[in-house]
Design a protein around this nucleic acid. Structure first.
Length: 853
DNA sequence: ATGGTGTGGTAG
DNA sequence: ATCGCTACCACACCAT
């Protein structure tokens, strides 16, 4: 079949289906009305140009696909955040006649967060195919896909969650069906493939550590939203540290009729070999099994004849039990002044002693709480450590475990030195909160046989400096405080300043399992997914971030490609890089773009990537005021506008803007500007034209350069040149001949670095006379090629190079015709190209009307 | 001194 | 098979 025929068939089949739909779906005005401004303009441009004959079939479809995606984005944006992203991560193709029809399904998919594929061009991307019946040929063609009935879409929406597609698998005769299931299950079972769009979701659903962190964050934010009595330093306190005994294991055992938690060694884990043990009961601990140990190791510790009982996680039930736990604490007859959430299964409750005639009975509290929780949770035991300081409550908890309680106050212990010593003798050094293997090994390096707290105390006597030299300033003084049963400043904060202690200061995710990529593009996709996840959370919290960090784990040079742990990260180097955004944002486009370019900066070969972590560091609350401010650029000189900017507007919109300026009382400054204020005005004008996310980078460059012009010019300029040279070398490495892109040439050069050099030389040579028109055309042509092949970041590099260069020369050449020509070229010809690709630079749209400086 | 960056440690 | 997260602090080092 030739291309034209195929086209004709596809077009007519689509029309045929549209004809079957309600009249409102066919109304062209209706369609136009739903478009964003940009989509509309593109649409019209398309119309006026007509179908270009020289397009290949692929280009034609890809073009259509991209335009449709834009419209989908616009549709979704128009809906606001009303719908749950049920189909997030799904790319869905609809085959043939369906009911409801293609357009309705399309809208459903898009408005509930899915992607819609119009043509089966990029087959790999499609996650599901919707169809009601398939001809034999198609069945064969789709046999490796998840083919579902349209009800999968409609019923998923009804129930507001993604239903398992298997329940809606398109059934044909039994034989075919079993074949289909067999083959189709292959790509599906590989949900544990980081290239699968659902990888993140599946991973998180099954990750105990993810749940632990998430639960903790939820509990903390709930704590802050509820009331509490804050004690003052000096108040007499009763602190109860309450903790479930091997929580996961207990919950799992309760759901397993055939096993006995007091008889069998029970562990909770996923697998049978290199799987981590999340929790083990006390029978298992008797054999030396510990939390975090691998199952294979645990098995090897058991004597012959004793079988390890591996139980699966039951996250749902764990949440339920925890809910009961916190409810019991909240409803207890003696109202706690503070119920501080430590984790899903652990809380610190505080009673402020008000010297009332009836002092509280700590024993009674412990007994009652333990029995109440045991009853209400259907058989979970908690242990309680009680004291008047946090550290002693924790140490007492350690004594109390399992299934008991222990009460002992600092006063009781300090009175008798011998008691205190025997108490300390019970504990290992890492029983102290905040002391782990690393600090223990530091302490050991000073004295080989340092085992328990008593030895620790005796070894260091009162020698704070020695301790501090060994483990650090703060840690040293902390340990010494603990050895006297006192809390250090940091842990006290939890009690005395709970609102700041529990407030969230950052937001992050990290995935260090299952990461195996081949290409940067795959990693880009993954970063997009991660960024999307984080941004969603950020927006739910009504916050913005102004600083983000990307951390990657990279396989150590000598580490094996596949580590002992299945899909584990193995031995890795951690690399991290943070970048400031200048303006706090919660926009996915800005953040994802920044992250992707940061990844390139870290220079990790795609195949060696073993872990990804993204952090939002500086969080600010979105208030109404800030909301207003974010739309504008905060500059000291407001309310004036350079005449040239206005003058360069298309004539037909000048009138509208003129009215708007008058209404807003913005004055046009005369042109040309006085030389002294030139640089500042130039910056202002330039900044105003930039996409939000690169403003700050440029601002930074400008700041650096302003400093240069102020101080010893030649010397610093030389330094700057060297710095830039090295940066350019890095970029050449990333973007040059080793680039994953096909080379695009300019002046016979394809290495980005070389092209930059040529452009810079050309720039310098034409600052006075101005560049030749033909040269500019050639250069623009090159930029267009970059733009067409989705290499917008390279254009960004050029804009920055030119803008930095312009600013550097502004004092000396600011009034020259060449300088001004370059300036115009940058503003009118280069920067607009940055705006062309709306997928990478989603924020640009706003800027087009961001006139209110 | 102060402040920022990248790295490392700890907990649950 | 297997689901090695994530918030936060402390520190070393650097520039200013």
């Amino acid at each position: 079949m030739d291309d034209d025929k195929l086209l004709a068939i596809l077009e007519s089949s689509q029309e045929g289906e549209e004809r079957g739909l309600g009249p409102e779906e066919r109304d062209p005005a209706e369609t136009l009305g739903r478009l964003s401004d940009d989509a509309l303009i593109e649409y019209m441009t398309n119309l006026s140009q007509g179908a270009r004959k020289d397009f290949t079939r692929e280009e034609y479809f890809r073009d259509k696909e991209i335009k449709q995606r834009e419209r989908d984005e616009a549709t979704r944006a128009g809906l606001g955040r009303a719908n749950a992203p049920i189909f997030a991560g799904c790319t869905i193709y609809i085959n043939g006649y369906t009911k409801p029809g293609r357009l309705q399904l399309h809208e459903m998919i898009v408005s509930y967060g899915g992607k819609f594929q119009h043509y089966l061009l990029a087959k790999k991307k499609v996650t599901h195919i919707v169809a009601t019946n398939l001809p034999l040929k198609k069945r064969l063609e789709f046999r490796n896909y998840r083919v579902v009935r349209p009800e999968w879409i409609t019923e998923s929406i009804e129930q507001q969650k993604l239903l398992p597609w298997q329940d809606y698998a398109l059934s044909w005769d039994q034989e075919q069906r079993s074949l289909q299931l067999k083959v189709a299950s292959a790509p599906v079972s590989s949900a544990v493939d980081c290239k699968d769009p659902n990888f993140l979701k599946t991973f998180f659903e099954n990750s105990r550590l993810h749940h632990l962190s998430n639960w903790k964050a939820d509990l903390r934010s709930r704590f802050l939203s509820e009331g509490f009595n804050k004690p003052s330093p000096g108040d007499a306190l009763s602190i109860f540290h309450i903790d479930f005994d091997c929580f996961f294991a207990t919950v799992a055992a309760l759901g397993c009729e055939s096993c006995d938690i007091n008889r069998d060694p029970i562990v909770v884990c996923h697998g049978s070999k290199s799987s981590d043990i999340a929790s083990c009961n006390y029978v298992a601990r008797k054999y030396g099994i510990r939390n975090g140990m691998w199952v294979s190791r645990a098995k090897s510790l058991l004597p012959p004849g004793v079988e390890l009982v591996s139980l699966p996680y039951n996250f749902k039930e764990i949440e339920e039990k925890s809910k009961i736990f916190y409810t019991v604490l909240k409803e207890y007859k003696i109202k706690f002044d503070l119920i501080l959430p430590i984790s899903i299964d652990e809380a610190v409750c505080v009673v402020i002693d008000h010297h009332t005639p009836h002092p509280i009975d700590r024993d009674e509290i412990c007994r009652e709480l333990r029995s109440e929780i045991w009853k209400r949770t259907g058989g979970c035991t908690v242990s309680i450590g009680c004291s008047n300081t946090l550290v002693l409550a924790r140490l007492n908890l350690k004594i109390a475990k399992p299934n008991g309680y222990h009460i002992l106050t600092q006063q009781q212990l300090v009175e008798n030195e011998a008691d205190w010593h025997s108490y300390l003798g019970k504990f290992q050094i890492d029983d102290l909160p905040g002391i782990g293997y690393s600090i223990v090994s530091k302490l050991r390096s000073l004295r080989q046989h340092l085992n328990n707290l008593l030895q620790l105390k005796q070894y260091f006597h009162n020698s704070l400096p020695l301790l501090q030299k060994c483990v650090g300033k703060k840690t040293g003084s902390k340990i010494l405080m603990y050895l006297h049963g006192k809390d250090d400043e940091e842990s006290s904060r939890m009690i005395f300043e709970p609102e700041s202690f529990f407030a969230r200061k950052s937001l992050s995710i990290e995935i260090n399992w299952g990461i195996r990529f081949d290409t940067v593009q795959e990693i880009d996709n993954f970063i997009d997914t991660c960024a999307d996840y984080l941004v969603q959370k950020l927006q739910e919290m009504n916050k913005r971030t102004s600083q983000i960090t990307l951390k990657v784990l990279r396989r150590c040079a000598d580490a094996p490609i596949e580590p002992p742990k299945y899909l584990g990260c193995g031995e890795c180097d951690a690399l991290s890089h943070n970048c400031r955004l200048g303006i706090p944002t919660s926009e996915l486009g800005v953040i994802a773009t920044e992250l992707k370019s940061t990844f390139r900066l870290l220079g990790c070969p795609p195949k060696d990537l073993r872990g990804v972590s993204i952090q939002f560091n500086k969080l600010i609350e979105v208030s109404y005021d800030q909301n207003e401010n974010q739309q504008r650029l905060k500059l000291p000189f407001q309310k004036t506008l350079n005449f040239d900017v206005f003058d360069n507007l298309p004539s037909d919109v000048k009138n509208d803007f003129s009215k708007e300026l008058k209404r807003r009382n913005i004055v046009l400054t005369s042109s040309p500007r006085p030389k002294t204020s030139y640089a500042a005005t130039y910056e202002e004008k330039f900044m105003e034209e930039l996409p939000t996310q690169i403003r700050n980078e440029v601002k930074n460059d400008l700041r650096i350069n302003r400093k240069i012009t102020r101080t010893k010019l030649s010397e610093l300029r030389e330094q700057n040149r060297k710095k830039k040279e090295s940066i350019r070398n890095v970029r050449a490495h990333l973007l040059g001949h080793e680039s994953l892109f096909e080379p695009i040439k300019f002046q016979k050069e394809s290495r980005f670095k070389d092209i930059c050099r040529i452009v810079m030389e050309w720039f310098d040579a034409t600052l006075i006379e101005g560049p030749h028109e033909k040269d500019l055309l050639l250069f623009e042509n090159y930029l267009d090629k970059l733009s067409d092949s989705n290499r917008v970041p390279l254009i960004l590099r050029f804009s920055k190079l030119i803008s930095v260069r312009l600013n550097l020369k502004s004092n000396q050449y600011g009034q020259e015709a060449g300088f001004q020509e370059w300036e115009q070229f940058l503003l009118k010809n280069v920067i607009p190209k940055l705006n062309k690709n709306k997928h990478t630079f989603q924020t640009v749209r706003k800027l087009d009307i961001d006139f209110d400086i």
